[in-house]
Write a protein that binds this DNA or RNA. Sequence first.
DNA 1: CATGAATGAGCTTTCATTCAT
DNA 2: TATGAATGAAAGCTCATTCAT
Lengths: 233, 233, 233, 233
Amino acid sequence: MMNTDALPPENTPKGETEEIKTHRPWQRKKEIRPQEILAAALDVFVEQGFSATKVAEVARRAGVQPGTIYVYFENKEALFKAVIHAAMSPVLSYSNEFLDNYTGTPEKLLYELTHQWWNLMESESCAGIPKLITAEANNFPELTQFYIDQVLVHAKRIVERVLQYGIDRNQFFIEDMDVTARIIMMSLHEMTVYAHSFSNFDKMKIDMPVYLDTLAAFLYKGLSSQKGRSPEV
Amino acid sequence: MMNTDALPPENTPKGETEEIKTHRPWQRKKEIRPQEILAAALDVFVEQGFSATKVAEVARRAGVQPGTIYVYFENKEALFKAVIHAAMSPVLSYSNEFLDNYTGTPEKLLYELTHQWWNLMESESCAGIPKLITAEANNFPELTQFYIDQVLVHAKRIVERVLQYGIDRNQFFIEDMDVTARIIMMSLHEMTVYAHSFSNFDKMKIDMPVYLDTLAAFLYKGLSSQKGRSPEV
Amino acid sequence: MMNTDALPPENTPKGETEEIKTHRPWQRKKEIRPQEILAAALDVFVEQGFSATKVAEVARRAGVQPGTIYVYFENKEALFKAVIHAAMSPVLSYSNEFLDNYTGTPEKLLYELTHQWWNLMESESCAGIPKLITAEANNFPELTQFYIDQVLVHAKRIVERVLQYGIDRNQFFIEDMDVTARIIMMSLHEMTVYAHSFSNFDKMKIDMPVYLDTLAAFLYKGLSSQKGRSPEV
Amino acid sequence: MMNTDALPPENTPKGETEEIKTHRPWQRKKEIRPQEILAAALDVFVEQGFSATKVAEVARRAGVQPGTIYVYFENKEALFKAVIHAAMSPVLSYSNEFLDNYTGTPEKLLYELTHQWWNLMESESCAGIPKLITAEANNFPELTQFYIDQVLVHAKRIVERVLQYGIDRNQFFIEDMDVTARIIMMSLHEMTVYAHSFSNFDKMKIDMPVYLDTLAAFLYKGLSSQKGRSPEV
DNA sequence: CATGAATGAGCTTTCATTCAT
DNA sequence: TATGAATGAAAGCTCATTCAT
């Protein structure tokens, strides 16, 4: 059977593991400190949004003084952008390698698609990014453009490859590839947005494994049905 | 044929229309003023989020002075909550009447569902609410709870009725009603969130009629397929 | 005899005297408040310089809260520039009218020049400006350029007219008009700079009437001497 | 002819030159480092004033790290005072020796006075001090007092000796020695203040040799004229 | 009811200073 | 001695809110 987590294996983020063991501990901190700040900032930004986030709160969670933030980031906005970029990098580096080598059924591929997307998003720092970008899209157009180009378009292309895989094997029957890919990509995206906005609320709590299975099954049925071809027959 | 706009017919919102024809213009203003403030505030809140919104900016767009806002609303947060409630009322008053009387095919009902949701959301003031709630969910838990109870649960129930309609007519084959309804409700919800976050960006612009048609068709195929029933047969 | 204060008679600054007596006191304040802030700011800026001046201190002396400053001025720098411009206006409006109508001796004219300069500078808000500009010249080049164009060049031209008056009457003998005018203008300027930097210190305290008389007399002797013409005779 | 630069011959400043030739380069640095900091600090203080000067900027120009400044100076204010004192030392050590031995004409002595003052001020590190003290006089009273006592009073005494030299030779005719000396001292002082505040601006650029010659000639005429003695004769 | 100048608490940001190395 | 990352007090500035009119 397939490894559900196989897709993003190269995601060893930032590679500080091979950092130079210099004699001065504060020099090692210099490299780690920004990472701690970014991690804390990501949490607070996702929780509260850009404007509601206080730099002092980020500092508190990062275990530093407010002034320290400004040693590494020019201002709050620069911190925000750095947070987004840093958190997105796992997604950016997500390769198509898995698809290149995939030889299973289209149905299983849909399972892979949904589960891997979820695992990628939730297991990495990027978990809260979709919600954050959604919330701040109008306030940070360039950042949103970057997100669209790098994440959404990228995700849509992966979906398109998956669809093409099924079409090539005569299992998927799709009239409008572009819109269909968009629909599926958006439903994946939606999951992560929801997860960070509503999953704290009882009525919205989702049993993720079940949800993912059901979604994959539903997508499979929608894609493999030939009904769309001759509705009036 | 069906009237696509038929579903929310009782939505004559606010009903002050009858008493507008008073003799004194400043008295008329007295009642309209808060509506203008709410409308302006909704725009700004949706555009920028709660924290980034300045009361002075709301006042400017409403054509009043900042102090005037505080004649009608205790503070910014109260204004925000009033905005959400006011904007949500069209959805809250959305009744099941249409479904009670519906007699067409389940496939057509899916078209109705998607188009009416879109028309309801976009034609009314509530257009930006899903995005706004999504963004501020963590900052305003009670408001989010209210939204979940009144909008999301409500929407899910409508979806469930639609699904049941198809099941009853032996056209829809659904294993997990709850999760399936959730998936469909979320994909509807997502549309409106997307529309207000990313539709200003070229690559995300969507041809809505085509999208809605394709989505309805896709849902129909997914729901009417019997494959899910016996995958191992 | 002549009135020593005759030169700048039109210096009724800003003309708030004819302000509209509206019924609302705070509306009257709106016009006066910035003046109070400018006056307080001028004092503090002259005393301490731009960087050392705290906005809160200006507010305190103006009898307002810090935030009020920002109702009228975009930021500290804008306040500074407004202060300079406002304080300079008496000098800018200083006309040549007195010179146009002057008919006395060149010697007396030198007395007028020195005394009127001093009276103009010290009796008006502009007293501390020369010192302030001198101190901040490198930090505010545009402002300094403005000062040079409007004040120093203006002052030099007046000196030149005074010199020409004496030359025309065969009483002043000047080889290099430009440099001589510069020397005299600078000695006038220096007085006001000194007055605001060192006059608080005992050893630098000057008996101004005596100083001005002596300076005028010294200038007269220097200008009326013919020695320079034939040093090698 | 006279040597224009003759007056301050003992100005071999600092005298550490003899001990520089030590064997270990880092030991040499140890002694030079503070000088480099002082030199850099003087530049920045003169350019920007005390408050606007950042310690980090001084460090940058001195080619050291901010912390290094505090190895040699207790704080910014101590650095400032050290800068002033160090920069003033050439003036402080300026002796009257030249005057003791002078035997030329009083007229030539005026030329010497103006040119030597200028050369002393501009050729040494003290060039920007007068402007700096003028700007910060109110913020550093003790320093200003020191400057007044050591520089201004000193300079005035030299001027007085020059005037006395002319009086003794029946060439200068002075009514009020004190005020006249003050006027001349101030006009010398003014030159250096001007030079550092306005000389960067086109309209204020001065041809120094011409200016100095003209000033000396003007002073001579003013001092040698007998008019002041009996204006009513 | 409507105003809008004034407020002042609280935020972002700066930067002189420290101290472990 | 020299470092330079970290500090944290203090400054500039914002803006929700008030209140005299």
